[in-house]
Computed example of a mutant assay.
Amino acid sequence: MVQSILFFALGFLCAAFLVSLIAPAVWRRAVVLTRRRLEASMPLTPAEILAEKDRIRAEFAMNTRRLEMNIKSLKEKVAEQLVEIGRGQEALKGLAVEKKDKNQALSDLQAKNAELRLREEELHKLTEKLAQAERSLEKRALELQKLEQMYDEASFSSSNRQIELVARESELDKLANDIAVLRSQRKEADRRNQELAAESKAARDALKAEKKRTAELDKKVERLLATLADREENLDRREKELARMRERPRKDHAVNGGTHKADEVEGIDNAIAKLEGDRERLEVRLTALARENKRLKTDLAALETAQPEQAGDAPRASAALREQMNELAAEVVNLTMRLDGPDSPIAKALATPRDGRQDVGERGISLADRVRALQKANATN
């Protein structure tokens, strides 16, 4: 490493020594060449200096003369161009005036053309109007002839119309009398219509009342059906008890061999048979009453669409339905009382005296009276 550095330093020093030896000779040669170049480019004698000045003056004079000639030629060209520009401006002014004249002439021609078109249209319209006027004159002539004929006919028919007018006046008098009669008949018809309207209103009110009563009767039937169902349950229980009672005496009779209870068993059987007959009869009556109720509902529905004069049958049908329902209720109460036995509260209620203030004629037969009548009928049977 040190050796290479030493070799590099030695080479550098040798090169520097060689350069220091060669550099003065190279410098002297460069100075000589530079001096020769300067001497060749610059005059060294006064004659050469004067000659150089003359040459420069001559070149300046030639350049000045060239410039003067160029300026003169340019001035001439400018003058010619100004002349041409003036001529062009004059020509433009002439063209502008000519254009203005032509535009004015064109506008005049257009106005004349429009005026000619208007006149042509007016002429065409006048021609059409003239043709229409000729046609209307022909029509007027024909109409005038027709009017003359119509005038003749009208003058002829006016005499006939006067005769007819006299006859029509007599007919008008007759029609006035007929109108007076018809007005009196109309007043009578209006009065009858008012009476019919009042009757119709009364019938509608009665129909509403009957509907209300029918609804009440339906509710009453439902209550009676519920009561009947309860009583049937009680009757079934009583039948079961009676069946057990029948079985018990038979067993006692089989065990004891006695005959003193046979009459009692037979009486119980008869009572049961009678109760069953009453129940069957009551069921038949209830079925018939339900059918009657359905029929009355149908009649009421038909009565709503019928004439007001036919509304008088509804109260009678409703009264018949109420009567049947009251009879059915009395039979149900009687059957219940018989099922309950002598200790029934119904029997106690029937044993109380009647209220003498009840008006039978206005309110009808009461339920208690109906039950008492059924008891009497059963007692006689």
Results as ranks from 00 to 15, higher is better:
Asp101Val: 05
Glu98Phe: 11
Leu109Met: 14
Glu122Met: 05
Arg87Phe: 01
Ala114Tyr: 07
Ala96Cys: 11
Val97Ser: 09
Leu116Ser: 08
Ala105Met: 12
Leu123Glu: 13
Lys93Trp: 12
Ala114Asn: 09
Lys102Gly: 08
Val97Pro: 00
Val97His: 09
Glu121Val: 11
Ala111His: 06
Leu109Phe: 13
Lys112His: 09
Lys102Thr: 15
Leu95Thr: 09
Ala114Gln: 06
Glu120Pro: 01
Gly86Glu: 02
Glu121Ala: 04
Ala111Asn: 05
Arg87Ile: 01
Gln89Ile: 02
Lys112Asn: 06
Leu123Ala: 15
Leu116Met: 10
Lys100Glu: 14
Leu92Gly: 10
Gly88Met: 11
Leu95Glu: 13
Asp108Ile: 07
Glu122Ile: 15
Asn103Arg: 04
His124Phe: 06
Ala96Phe: 06
Lys100Leu: 06
Glu120His: 07
Leu92Lys: 08
Asn103Asp: 07
Asn113Val: 13
Glu90Gln: 11
Glu122Asp: 03
Leu123Ile: 15
Glu122Thr: 13
Lys100Cys: 14
Leu118Trp: 11
Lys100Trp: 07
Glu98Ile: 02
Glu90Ala: 08
Ser107Arg: 04
Glu121Gly: 07
Glu121Thr: 11
Val97Lys: 04
Leu109Pro: 11
Ala105His: 05
Lys102Glu: 15
Gln89Asp: 03
Lys99Pro: 06
Lys100Asp: 14
Arg87Cys: 02
Leu123Asp: 12
Gly88Trp: 07
Lys99Tyr: 10
Lys93Gly: 14
Gly94Met: 01
Asn103Cys: 05
Leu118Pro: 06
Ala96Glu: 13
Lys102His: 12
Lys102Pro: 03
Arg87Tyr: 00
Leu95Lys: 10
Leu92Ala: 12
Arg87Pro: 00
Ala91Tyr: 00
Asp108Lys: 08
Glu120Ala: 14
Leu92Glu: 07
Lys102Ala: 15
Lys93Thr: 11
Glu122Ser: 12
Glu90Trp: 06
Asp101Pro: 00
Leu92Ile: 07
Arg119Tyr: 05
Asp101Leu: 14
Ala105Tyr: 04
Gln110Glu: 12
Lys100Ala: 15
Ala96Gly: 14
Val97Ala: 04
Asn113His: 11
Glu115Leu: 03
Arg119Lys: 15
Ala114His: 02
Leu116His: 07
Glu90Gly: 02
His124Gly: 12
Ala114Leu: 03
Leu109Asn: 12
Leu116Gln: 12
Glu90Asp: 10
Asp101Ser: 05
Lys102Asp: 09
Gln104Ile: 02
Leu118Glu: 15
Gly86Cys: 00
Leu92Arg: 07
Leu106His: 00
Ala111Glu: 04
Leu123Phe: 09
Glu120Ile: 08
Asn103Val: 10
